[in-house]
Simulated scan of single mutants.
Amino acid sequence: MTKARISTLDDGVYAVGGVVGLRIRKRNGTTRYLMRWSRHGVRHD
């Protein structure tokens, strides 16, 4: 996903293609990258 594409998205959480567990969260004009993984059966962000 390109920077130009990200700038056109509405607020919300979007999956980044090609990377399992990587997501982009847009809220109030800020963008954050989130990585979700599990270790010993416990999920982490």
Rank of each mutant, 00 (worst) to 15 (best):
T8K: 01
K3L: 12
Y33W: 15
T2R: 00
W37K: 04
D45V: 09
G29T: 04
M35L: 15
A4L: 11
R36C: 13
T8P: 03
D10G: 04
K26G: 00
G12R: 01
T2Q: 02
T31Q: 03
V13T: 14
V42A: 09
I6K: 08
V42L: 07
N28L: 11
Y14F: 11
Y14A: 07
V16K: 04
G21E: 02
V19M: 14
R39Y: 08
G41K: 06
K26S: 08
G29Y: 12
T30G: 12
H40E: 14
R23Y: 13
M1A: 09
L22M: 15
V19S: 13
K3Q: 07
Y14P: 10
I24Q: 06
I6C: 03
T30W: 13
R25L: 04
T8Q: 02
G29C: 00
T8Y: 02
R43I: 08
S38T: 12
V20H: 08
R43Y: 12
V16P: 09
H44Y: 15
R32N: 15
I6Y: 00
K26H: 03
R32L: 14
Y14W: 01
A15T: 05
K3W: 06
S38M: 04
T2I: 07
V42E: 11
T30L: 13
R39C: 03
G29Q: 07
V42D: 10
W37C: 05
R32M: 12
G41E: 03
H44P: 02
N28Q: 04
L34G: 12
R23P: 10
M35A: 13
N28M: 03
R36M: 11
R36W: 08
L22N: 14
H40C: 15
S38K: 11
V13K: 14
R23I: 08
R5D: 03
D10W: 06
M1S: 08
T2Y: 00
H44N: 08
D10I: 04
R36P: 07
L22R: 15
A15I: 06
S7P: 01
V19K: 11
V42W: 02
S7N: 12
I24C: 03
G29R: 12
R39D: 03
S7R: 06
R39F: 04
L9R: 02
D10K: 08
R43A: 13
G12C: 12
V42N: 10
M35E: 14
G41N: 11
W37A: 04
M35V: 15
K3N: 05
D10Y: 06
L9S: 07
I24L: 06
T30H: 15
D11M: 02
T2A: 00
M1P: 06
G29L: 10
M1L: 04
V16A: 09
R27F: 05
G29V: 06
K3A: 11
W37P: 05
H40A: 13
V19Q: 12
G21N: 01
G41V: 09
L22Q: 15
S38C: 01
Y14M: 07
Y33F: 15
D11P: 00
S7L: 02
V20D: 05
K3G: 01
V13Q: 13
L9T: 04
H40W: 14
G18T: 05
R43W: 10
L34P: 09
R36Y: 14
G21L: 06
R43E: 14
T8H: 01
R5L: 04
